[in-house]
Every structure is written in structure tokens, then in C-alpha cells.
Nucleic acid binder design. Structure first.
Length: 300
DNA sequence: TCAAACCTGTAG
DNA sequence: CTACAGGTTTGA
């Protein structure tokens, strides 16, 4: 579940690895993945100019003022791969499914994209760590969305995951004002991408644990002093997570390797285990589809 | 402000 | 087989 540190890692990896690359052709294997105003093939022939991040959104810049915005949602990921060669498999969309095994030498030359690949950019002027020629967008649950647009349209098209100011760039006073103006639970506000972009369940859970603040407190009940503590925890946790290339859980993967911040998780995924601060059992509460883990003793 | 829908792999 | 994971959109 890519959040800010994972999106940052992906953007940095792509920025470095794709320098000098140009799009030779594109493939869209699952139509709903593409949501923007332009076609994926509008990137054909464009030179890669850089990758960046806003909130949880990864942004690739191409020549001619073209942009590829990626909202990774739950399972979206960019990985390098080999474009299929030889006989193209017919059909493609529709029934789709029946994903065959990874193409391998000696499989009678009929290669296909690996399973769960929804879109791909075949590149020239690029060779991956293993000689790959393509950037694949793989997305098991099909929640992810790609937007191709002009740079001038970017602001309007940015997915919700990048609407608010970056949580790492928000000033303490502004952070406090945003909390003070909402009666929603503080954890809900931390994950509200319109209020501040970048946090999902994992890091919001960790930040509130570190700050010693109950996730259920109404945001408007947070004092200025507590607000500062939360923001400081956010800075420290996100900074360290970026240094460690994000958290590798479930099937998250960055183009140039996994992250290791999951080793630092103190609350997320630890329900039923003793609180690392006070030893009391961490509790799990589920509300409207979201699970939160917290220590009822030291988070007030 | 809240629930359902979108998805599929994994764990029970 | 059912429950669960969960960011975001959409509709009540």
C-alpha cells in the first residue's frame, strides 16, 4: 500500500533509472487502468524528462509537456520487464485472465507480459538492471489509475491522493489550524488527502503511536502542543521511512528494490502484542472498513 | 459523515 | 468458503 515514503522511493528510482530513455511504444492491457484525457499511446516517441511525487501520486514528465500521473492505490507498482517478442497473443482484454507463467527461454517463443501487468511503456535508450527494455505498471487489484495529460492540466487532474499540501511540507501553524477546524477523528484527518497529502493507514497509525495520541480524539481537541508533537513524529517517521525505501509489506515493490521500514513498525500490524512502550496489549478497532491499532494505555 | 463499491490474493 | 486487506470514488 504505497504511501508517501513508498511513492517517493518509486519516483527516485524511476528518475535515476530512466534518465535518457524514450518511449518507443505503449501497451494498455486493462482499459480501466487509464483514466486521463489522453491516450497512453500519446506518449509514443516522447523523451523521459524526470520523475517526482506529490502526496502518494507518482508523476513522470515527458517531452512535449506530457505527463503520466500514477495513483497506485493498493497494489499498483512500477517494475522493469522485458517486452514480449514473437507472436503476439490475440484478444488481450475481455476474458483476459488465465495469466500464464513468466515468459522463459525455450517456451516456444510465445512470450506475453507477466501476470497483473495493466500497462507498459516499451523504451529505447534504456536498459534495466537485467537488460529489461520496458517499464511495466503492475496492479493486482486493479484499483490503480494512470492519467496521461498535458502539464497545464496536471493541477486539475491530480488524483485525490495528491490534492492537499504535502504533509512533509506543511508548517506547524497551518497543521494545527487544519486539525482545529475538523471534528473528525484525528486519524481520519491525517489520512484525508485533501487536508494533507501522503499518509495512509500504516504511517498514520505509526505517527499517532509515536506521538502518544489516541486515534479517536476529535481533531479539534488536539492542543497546539500536541499538534506540534504529531507533526514532529510525522517528520521523523517519514524521513526514516524514506531513508529505508519505505515499508515492504504484502507485495509492495519499488523498481530498484524493496524497502525495510516494516522492521521499524511499532503498532501497525501488531495488534495483540505488547506495547513496545508500556507492555500493555495493543488493541485493534475496525470502523467503516479501516483498521487501527493503538495502545489504550499510552495513547490518550 | 458514512457505507458501499471497486478488486483479488492470502489467511483462517 | 468466508473474512480481511484498504485508498479512493461514489452515492445515500
Amino acid at each position: 500500500m504505497p504511501e508517501l515514503p513508498e511513492a517517493q522511493t518509486i519516483a527516485s528510482d524511476l528518475d535515476r533509472a530512466l534518465a535518457g530513455a524514450r518511449v518507443k511504444s505503449t501497451e494498455l492491457l486493462y482499459r480501466p487502468t487509464l483514466a486521463g484525457p489522453l491516450a497512453l499511446s500519446d506518449l509514443d516517441g516522447s523523451a523521459f524528462e524526470g520523475a517526482s511525487r506529490r502526496g502518494k501520486c507518482v508523476i513522470l514528465a515527458f517531452g512535449g509537456g506530457l505527463r503520466l500521473l500514477a495513483s497506485l492505490r493498493m497494489t499498483g507498482q512500477f517494475v522493469f520487464g522485458h517486452s514480449p517478442v514473437g507472436a503476439a497473443s490475440p484478444g488481450g482484454a475481455g476474458a483476459g485472465g488465465a495469466g500464464e507463467a513468466e515468459p522463459r527461454a525455450g517456451s516456444r517463443g510465445k512470450r506475453v507480459w507477466p501476470p497483473h501487468v495493466r500497462a507498459a511503456l516499451v523504451l529505447e535508450g534504456f536498459s534495466g538492471p537485467d537488460g529489461e527494455d520496458s517499464l511495466m505498471f503492475r496492479d493486482i487489484r486493479k484499483f490503480g489509475r494512470l492519467f496521461v495529460c498535458r502539464a497545464s492540466e496536471e493541477e486539475f487532474l491530480l488524483p485525490a491522493s495528491a490534492k492537499g499540501p504535502d504533509v512533509t511540507a506543511i508548517a506547524p501553524g497551518e497543521f494545527y489550524r487544519r486539525l482545529a477546524s475538523s471534528k473528525a477523528p484525528v486519524k481520519t484527518l491525517l489520512m484525508d488527502q485533501a487536508a494533507m497529502a501522503g499518509l495512509g493507514n500504516i504511517y498514520a497509525t505509526e505517527i499517532l503511536f509515536e506521538a502518544g495520541i489516541s486515534p479517536f480524539r476529535p481533531a479539534s481537541s488536539i492542543a497546539r502542543e500536541e499538534s506540534d508533537i504529531i507533526l514532529k513524529a510525522a517528520g521523523e517517521i517519514l524521513g526514516e521511512a524514506v531513508r529505508m525505501r519505505g515499508s515492504t509489506i504484502s507485495n509492495y515493490q519499488a523498481p530498484l528494490g524493496p524497502g525495510s521500514y516494516q522492521q521499524r513498525h511499532r503498532a501497525y500490524g501488531k495488534a495483540g502484542r505488547p506495547c513496545p512502550r508500556c507492555g500493555r496489549t495493543l488493541e485493534k478497532v475496525r470502523s467503516s472498513g479501516r483498521t487501527t491499532v493503538y495502545c489504550p494505555n499510552c495513547q490518550r
